[in-house]
Each structure stands twice: as C-alpha cells, then as structure tokens.
C-alpha cells in the first residue's frame, strides 16, 4: 500500500514558482495513482478565486491546470476556512469542489496522512 501524501499549497498563484510546484507534485502523484490530498491555505486560497485572467501575464494557466486535478485522480481537495474568510473569498464560489475545514479539522486532516509537505 502506497503511503498517503497531503500537499499543502499556501502561496499565491502568479508571483512565484511555489503554487506551480505544489500542483506539479499533485498531478505527477495522481498520474501514478498515489493516494493524495491537497489543502489550500493562506495565500494559496487565491489560486481558487473565480474568473482569473492570467493571459496577460504570459504564464502557463495555473487556474485551468488546477481544474485537471480530479481528472488526474486527485479528488480529496480541502481549503482552510480561516484563510478564505480572512481574504474575503466566498467559499461557495471557489473554482474547485473543495471541502472547507476549520482549524481543528485541519489538525485532524494532517494527522490522517502518512506524509505531509508544505509549499
């Protein structure tokens, strides 16, 4: 049985490589059928904001790529309630079907996985 891995993505989408790296780990792991979860917290929740238009930045479209996670078998997607509220985002209008978790639930979530990495 492969070890389960939780990837915590906590950087904003368009300013540095962290958000892209977290997604690449998730897509690669999903392609190899690893039991994966992904948690968006802190500025990472901005990756899930609706109606982003990155074309003007001439970057690979991270927002579109994120939509592929369920196709790659990564369906356990979580978001930190505190981070979402703090940034004025509506949990109901995020761009992926995510489970919204409070702090206590986040601690329990991390406890359930064999391995955790935070990017």
């Amino acid at each position: 049985m492969a070890k389960s891995l939780l990837i915590i993505s906590r950087q904003a989408p368009w300013s540095g490589p962290s958000a892209r790296e977290a997604l690449d780990i998730a897509l690669a792991g999903g392609a190899f059928d690893l039991p994966l979860g992904m948690l968006f917290m802190d500025d990472g929740v901005f990756q899930l904001a609706a109606a982003q238009q990155p074309a003007s930045l001439q970057l690979k479209d991270l927002a579109a790529n994120l939509q592929a996670l369920p196709m790659f078998g990564v369906e356990k997607l979580f978001v930190c309630a505190h981070s979402v509220a703090e940034r004025g985002l509506d949990p109901a209008s995020l761009s992926l079907p995510v489970e919204v978790l409070d702090d206590a639930a986040l601690a329990a979530l991390i406890g359930r996985y064999d391995q955790v990495v935070t990017l």
Partner: peptide
C-alpha cells in the same frame, strides 16, 4: 499520528508560524 512541523523562515517576513500554530495538533 503525530507531526513535527519544521519552520525555517522568519516570523517577521510571513505567516508560516501563525498558520502552523492554528493547525497544530495536541501531540
């Protein structure tokens, strides 16, 4: 399962420490 959280960035530059404390399990 218990987790050891390793932080190496200054708490004056970002919120890793504050976020970590929010989701820290009791053990």
């Amino acid at each position: 399962m218990t987790t050891l959280h390793v932080i190496s960035h200054s708490p004056f530059g970002d919120n890793r420490l504050a976020s970590c404390l929010r989701l820290l399990g009791t053990d």
